[in-house]
Nucleic acid binder design. Sequence first.
DNA 1: ATCTTAGGTAGACGCTTGTTTACTTGCAAC
DNA 2: GTTGCAAGTAAACAAGCGTCTACCTAAGAT
Lengths: 215, 215
Amino acid sequence: MRVEDKRTVPAEASGERRPERPERAGRPKRDREATERRILDAARDLFGEHGYDGVTVREIAARAEANVALVNRYFGSKAALFGEVLTGESVIRGVIAGDPAGLPRRLAEHFVRQIDQRSATAMSRMLDRSAGQPEVKKILLRYLEDVIVQPIIAQLEGPDARARALLASTIIMGGGPVRRLFGLDDLRAADPAEVTDRLTAMFTAALAPPVRPEA
Amino acid sequence: MRVEDKRTVPAEASGERRPERPERAGRPKRDREATERRILDAARDLFGEHGYDGVTVREIAARAEANVALVNRYFGSKAALFGEVLTGESVIRGVIAGDPAGLPRRLAEHFVRQIDQRSATAMSRMLDRSAGQPEVKKILLRYLEDVIVQPIIAQLEGPDARARALLASTIIMGGGPVRRLFGLDDLRAADPAEVTDRLTAMFTAALAPPVRPEA
DNA sequence: ATCTTAGGTAGACGCTTGTTTACTTGCAAC
DNA sequence: GTTGCAAGTAAACAAGCGTCTACCTAAGAT
């Protein structure tokens, strides 16, 4: 009924076009793997910057220079693509691993490192925008549990390990919104060594075993 | 052209209806102030729980038992209503005010108090969902600056006061997502006094003046 | 009893979202 | 060359969004 006519223009309007694009040298015209990779990269960048529902699949497709339909065709759904991005995003894993004594300092240094890099707000930005669909929340929860909370707990001794790990997670997850809203300048303005020391103390306060096991 | 007929049913289908509603005793039929208040309350609850764009104006209207159009009629727009909610939401103000020495402990106690109340995640939930429209981000930034960051800075001495206040804000803002994603049980399971002490130490580490003014 | 006005309402509008469908086209095997 | 198939595409789809307009109707003033 509403379908009237399609495709009256031959798809690109002006003769050859690909050869005159100097950047991204010689991308093959039809390469599924490469296209999937471009979509995944675009999704990682955009999700990292704007969160899950701060990004549309059309934006992802545009940045990947791919058609919108390919996003769902290759990854099933936006939520599935999000999960795919998350599983690949495991920088924090290496940060947590190591000797337990140095964990607070490593977390602090990771935090400060994120201040300097501009695109590295990545993961923490994805966290807070989840509420929309329960499906996304589930994906997110699983990821945080596996990649942050459990690895931290594994390094802790003493009671209430989980609660202590969650307090540390609070700092990690609060960093994203703060950086995003207030910008990086204010944190960058301070002495990095000072900030690192401060954050180390904060993480230590969150994670250290109770000082008074029996009163 | 597409308008065909309206109002074929006399608006409430079954005779009198208001008297048979036991709850909300004797709400007057036409009371603008009361309706505005109901909308505002509903908005505060829902924004607090699901964030800005996790809530639709239709949901707000439904919870307020008001018509959708009234939301925009009385408050101008969804964003304006959000701003209205924020200006009324100043519990944290009283928490920050007081003697500077006790500030970390007051912040910690506020954090723990939010664990116990179920609907008090309020403000921190609104924070992270702002990215969508820049207008909302602006409203949010202004609010955080006026109600949290500046009052904290006012209590600080020494250099980098702003950076230190932002570190404390990190904890405050991270609490929302953590509670929302992981639930309250894990934090509630731990000894509240323990958690409060821990958080006090965390806030102190963030806010305290530098220990080594000159090295 | 009538008029006026403000409170309230239903529904449509325009737009955007994620997703799907029907189609075209480049590339390789034959 | 022709054919087959997967890669890629444009457009439509249904659902949802915030917003706005045209319309009722209760209630106070006259």
